[in-house]
């Protein structure tokens, strides 16, 4: 037996010239980037006392708790409304994006492409666009979240539709059921657990996104945070950050618990 084995390969061998060259080029590029980006660790040190002072002022100040709570409610409402509308709209979008449900391959490819594009554009860019369209305020934020949710759920719902067992739909097609019925009776029930999972993730995403949207004026608690930071009211800012953390944490725990029960 042992004779048929060749010599064991060496544990370490010299890299081939090609990969060595790539490696050296990569290192050079990193060094150059370090210079380009004005990375000077000294400044971290020089600015440290100022940072300490700000941190010292960041003792949460709860005297604006009630007005901030209303803003927080608005944030949550934006997230839930935007997400709910987005999830509903994602279903038809996903049908067109799923290979085995789209009317033809062109529609499938086009919808997939659009959904990917929507996901690629950052949410703040969507928010700025909708502010131009409908003005400052929570409506622009909700529209942003709707679009974001379609980008997310449209893709994963489509995957869920593609992955369902094709047997039951074929059985219903064979008995002469219409396409809507085949979809509603066979595909949707099979895809529902995966879709619920995705929708809950979308809620978490929307809650996190809705916090940031206020920074550009699209409603929600971000406005308060931005104002507090710009007016050097670090005590208020820290309170808002603590509040947001508590809310996002609570939402994530709740959605995690719901997902574990699917």
């Amino acid at each position: 037996m042992s004779e048929s084995h060749g010599r064991l390969p060496a544990r370490w061998s010299w890299p081939r010239p090609g990969s060595l060259l790539t490696f050296v080029a990569l290192l050079a590029f990193l060094a150059w980037s370090l210079a380009m980006l004005k990375i000077r660790p000294g400044e971290l040190w020089d600015g440290f006392p100022a940072m300490l002072e700000v941190l010292g002022q960041m003792r949460p100040n709860w005297d604006r708790f009630v007005p901030i709570s209303w803003r927080m409610l608005e944030t949550l409402q934006m997230a839930l409304v935007g997400c709910a509308i987005g999830v509903v709209l994602s279903v038809p979008v996903a049908v067109l994006a799923a290979k085995n449900h789209a009317p033809n391959r062109f529609v499938h490819a086009l919808t997939r492409g659009l959904v990917t594009f929507v996901r690629t554009v950052p949410d703040l860019v969507w928010a700025l666009l909708f502010i131009v369209w409908v003005g400052l305020g929570p409506f622009a934020g909700v529209l942003t979240l709707v679009v974001e949710t379609i980008g997310f759920c449209g893709r994963f719902f489509a995957d869920a539709f593609e992955e369902t067992d094709q047997g039951p739909p074929e059985a219903l097609t064979a008995m002469g059921a219409r396409n809507v019925s085949v979809f509603a009776c066979a595909t949707l029930p099979a895809a529902l657990p995966a879709m619920t999972n995705t929708a809950l993730f979308a809620v978490e995403k929307a809650v996190r996104a809705s916090v940031v949207l206020g920074l550009v004026g699209a409603g929600g608690i971000g406005v308060e945070l931005k104002t507090a930071m710009e007016m050097f009211q670090y005590d208020r800012a820290s309170m808002i950050i603590a509040y947001v953390f508590a809310m996002v944490f609570a939402v994530e725990r709740l959605s995690g618990w719901l997902r574990s029960r699917i």
């Binding site: 047997g167 039951p168 074929e170 009776c185 066979a186 029930p189 099979a190 529902l192 657990p193």
Partner: peptide, 8 residues
């Protein structure tokens, strides 16, 4: 394969 919808 019976092709029933298992969740219904």
């Amino acid at each position: 394969k019976h092709n029933l919808v298992p969740r219904l």
